[in-house]
Design a protein around this nucleic acid. Sequence first.
DNA 1: GCGTTCACTGGGCAACCTGCCCAGTGGAAC
DNA 2: GTTCCACTGGGCAGGTTGCCCAGTGAACGC
Lengths: 160, 160
Amino acid sequence: MGIDRLDGRIIGLLAREPRIGVLEMSRRLGVARGTVQARLDRLQSNGVIRGFGPEVDPAALGYPVTAFATLEIRQGQGADVRAHLATVPEVLELHTTTGTGDMLCRLVARSNADLQRVIDRVVGFDGIVRAATAIVMENPVPLRIIPLVEQAAQDSGRRD
Amino acid sequence: MGIDRLDGRIIGLLAREPRIGVLEMSRRLGVARGTVQARLDRLQSNGVIRGFGPEVDPAALGYPVTAFATLEIRQGQGADVRAHLATVPEVLELHTTTGTGDMLCRLVARSNADLQRVIDRVVGFDGIVRAATAIVMENPVPLRIIPLVEQAAQDSGRRD
DNA sequence: GCGTTCACTGGGCAACCTGCCCAGTGGAAC
DNA sequence: GTTCCACTGGGCAGGTTGCCCAGTGAACGC
């Protein structure tokens, strides 16, 4: 567990120019191609790099509205609620949490009006007692990982 | 705006096998290579596909704890708070929202104890009045987009 | 000290894919 | 009917990948 500075630079390069290729990376980093290849293999088998899936923008797909819903679940209904929410395409992610609610989910919708439909579908299930929804207005910091990668690379002066 | 079924299948293929390449995709989808290439170009210039950055797992990086913090901001301090939070590597994303809080941010930390340090750093800023934190226990639905893509592809029988 | 292990280097090879080009076809819109 | 557009199927040079190898140097255990 943990990454060193070279790993950090590899991830940084990939994040900035995803289509860059192993050869070009080795040139930029000043190391042999085999080294970059080996590092990449290790990062992937480590699970540090989970994959290279396309980043799809829900807004461009016609779903410009994002919201977070805090759900309160009836005792013992957790599994059913999870299964139900997994069937709703507009539910982009779901977490179970400590705190006031029991679950937190990220929703998208075609419009504010459409959000009502989505929420109705989400809460239209027996195990859900209450839902509190917060609509996202701005997204000053979009989901990012580079600063954390750099932090992690700094923290460990280790080789692997 | 919007995608058709072929676009949906292209995104689906890419999501399942990100390293697949245009040629192999064209074979699987039974269309000409140029078609897939043109579709991909369009999806990217449309902004539907934002990129192909590596998906990095914070847990594998040594940050297994995730939390969501709802922040209450002093009037007129929004911009300063945004700038402050952007400098904290453990802040993975930040949204301004309607509802009880003014902002919602996703945090990671090395441990529950470390989370205290992160929260201290987050709220150790003048413009933040109050913070409510919910620690994530489980993540039954990890961030996903495919179901929504399929929904969007269904909805439009359109060519583009 | 001494041998082993491991990561990295720098090189080479065939196979494959990319980016780019082209002419031809079929359907839809005007 | 004409034009426009997406798609097809083909070809080409250049670059990249995946794989292999021997040699080097540093760290480790004995």
